[in-house]
């Protein structure tokens, strides 16, 4: 695709702008900023990735991976409201999910630990974990606010903090994982995912593209489950104090 051809596709943005304007949705400014940011950010990362792929150094690759996790954890933590240390929790959880998944992919030979393979794969798993973890934090917070009476009754009956809040924890993990599970179930029927579409558009055979997509699907569900499980299990403890009482400032 030439730059000229690409520039013609801006017509598509004009459609979105005209809908926003005529229907008084008032998103024109955000759409324009979004288009500019997406173009600049992607162009910049294109240059950076070209350099990183060329250097092919595992230390630089790892630093990039850690930076991606750092950025994702900052955003996921925003959904945690007043929960303490969500940034740390998010970092640990996404790191755990991403590192286990990448390790399995590298050990099984599905990918090699080279920047051209690890960075795109990490982008997908870290991004998905970020969204899933954000949902988990938000749901856990809502659950504790809405169901603190149930938790307190269970504590009063002699339950441990974990036993008293296990239903709330499970629900929060389920909420975080649900979009990934739904998306997995509709693959190929409702949606043709980005990676597969990209490979086919770039001239790869659909069979190879599908093979990669299946790997991507498996790694996404694995990372999301590890990250949400870890995030919820670390976070629920913040709702209790050392005397196994509900932390009232949190609810």
């Amino acid at each position: 695709m030439s730059i000229l051809t690409l520039s013609f596709t801006t017509v598509l943005v004009l459609i979105a702008l005209s809908i926003s304007k005529t229907q008084k949705i008032h998103l024109e400014k955000d759409i324009i900023i979004g288009v500019i940011r997406a173009t600049l950010q992607l162009s910049l990362i294109g240059i950076v990735l070209t350099y990183i792929f060329k250097v092919d150094n595992w230390i630089i690759t790892t630093v990039i991976l850690l930076l991606m996790i750092f950025n994702a954890s900052q955003i996921a933590a925003k959904r945690g409201g007043q929960i303490k240390d969500t940034k740390k929790t998010a970092y640990v959880s996404i790191f755990l999910g991403a590192s286990i998944t990448i390790a399995i992919l590298v050990i099984t030979g599905a990918i090699s630990y080279s920047p051209s393979e690890v960075i795109p794969v990490s982008g997908m798993i870290v991004g998905n974990s970020m969204v899933a973890l954000g949902l988990t934090f938000k749901q856990l917070n809502n659950n504790f606010k809405n169901k603190y009476q149930e938790v307190e009754i269970k504590l009063a009956l002699g339950a441990t903090e974990k036993t008293a809040s296990i239903d709330l924890i499970r629900d929060a993990i389920r909420t975080g994982m649900q979009p990934s599970v739904d998306s997995m179930q509709t693959l190929g029927i409702v949606q043709l995912p980005g990676m597969m579409t990209g490979l086919i558009l770039a001239g790869q055979s659909p069979v190879l593209a599908i093979r990669y997509q299946i790997m991507v699907t498996f790694m996404l569900i694995s990372t999301v489950s590890i990250a949400t499980f870890s995030g919820a299990l670390i976070t629920y403890k913040r709702y209790f104090n050392a005397r196994k009482q509900l932390n009232r400032s949190m609810i």
Partner: peptide
């Protein structure tokens, strides 16, 4: 404060105003 809260709660039962059944 020297008793495990779980042991204490099993000996000292509490019934709340709102009968929350789970």
């Amino acid at each position: 404060l020297e008793i495990d809260p779980i042991d204490l709660r099993r000996e000292v039962g509490y019934v709340f105003q709102v009968p929350y059944l789970f």
